[in-house]
Computed example of a mutant assay.
Amino acid sequence: MAAPHYDTVLQAVRDLQKRGYQVDFNIQDGHLVCSGLNLRLHPEQFQVREFHRFEGNSDPGDEDIVYAIESEEGVKGLLVSAFGPYSEPENDALMRKLQMPRA
């Protein structure tokens, strides 16, 4: 089954949340963290199930990516991050560890 297509970040987030990706992940020190669950995941402890890239309508440099992530314990959540010229180096390092395709 092909991954759905979304026109906006908000569409993607809302649909993925409906499909069970409820946790908000952030990147900290090369790990995914969810402070609400006191959860810290090393790259080998989770899988990216799907991802969706978005380019700004007026500025192609305004780029975001939404990752649908599942931990090996079954915790499902989202990471929304910039990519391209505005991505944070820490995000780039983590994505290289995941070997995710980059723009």
Score class of each variant (00 low, 15 high):
residue 36 G to N: 13
residue 17 Q to V: 06
residue 11 Q to H: 10
residue 51 F to K: 07
residue 83 F to E: 10
residue 95 M to F: 14
residue 88 E to S: 10
residue 79 L to E: 03
residue 33 V to C: 09
residue 99 Q to F: 05
residue 88 E to T: 05
residue 17 Q to F: 05
residue 45 Q to S: 06
residue 84 G to M: 11
residue 4 P to H: 02
residue 57 N to P: 01
residue 55 E to M: 06
residue 31 H to K: 15
residue 18 K to Y: 06
residue 88 E to H: 15
residue 75 V to L: 03
residue 15 D to E: 15
residue 92 D to G: 03
residue 30 G to K: 12
residue 75 V to W: 02
residue 93 A to H: 04
residue 42 H to Q: 13
residue 27 I to Q: 05
residue 79 L to V: 05
residue 75 V to T: 12
residue 3 A to Y: 07
residue 34 C to Q: 07
residue 59 D to M: 04
residue 26 N to C: 04
residue 79 L to N: 01
residue 38 N to I: 06
residue 69 I to G: 00
residue 21 Y to P: 02
residue 63 E to K: 14
residue 96 R to I: 08
residue 11 Q to I: 00
residue 19 R to I: 05
residue 56 G to K: 07
residue 85 P to V: 13
residue 83 F to R: 03
residue 24 D to W: 06
residue 32 L to P: 00
residue 59 D to F: 09
residue 9 V to F: 06
residue 69 I to Q: 00
residue 74 G to S: 04
residue 75 V to H: 03
residue 59 D to H: 08
residue 50 E to L: 05
residue 4 P to I: 01
residue 11 Q to E: 15
residue 63 E to G: 03
residue 72 E to N: 04
residue 69 I to N: 00
residue 8 T to F: 05
residue 67 Y to R: 00
residue 88 E to F: 11
residue 86 Y to E: 12
residue 41 L to R: 08
residue 41 L to W: 12
residue 53 R to P: 06
residue 79 L to Q: 04
residue 28 Q to F: 08
residue 35 S to M: 13
residue 13 V to G: 00
residue 65 I to F: 01
residue 32 L to N: 02
residue 8 T to M: 07
residue 49 R to F: 06
residue 5 H to S: 12
residue 90 E to T: 01
residue 28 Q to V: 05
residue 45 Q to V: 00
residue 1 M to E: 14
residue 53 R to Q: 13
residue 1 M to S: 14
residue 13 V to H: 01
residue 40 R to Q: 13
residue 89 P to Q: 11
residue 101 P to Q: 13
residue 39 L to I: 09
residue 37 L to Q: 15
residue 2 A to S: 10
residue 63 E to S: 12
residue 27 I to D: 04
residue 63 E to N: 08
residue 67 Y to D: 02
residue 30 G to F: 09
residue 52 H to E: 12
residue 73 E to V: 03
residue 10 L to R: 09
residue 23 V to L: 13
residue 13 V to N: 02
residue 87 S to Y: 05
residue 51 F to C: 09
residue 84 G to W: 11
residue 76 K to C: 10
residue 3 A to N: 07
residue 50 E to N: 13
residue 91 N to W: 00
residue 13 V to W: 01
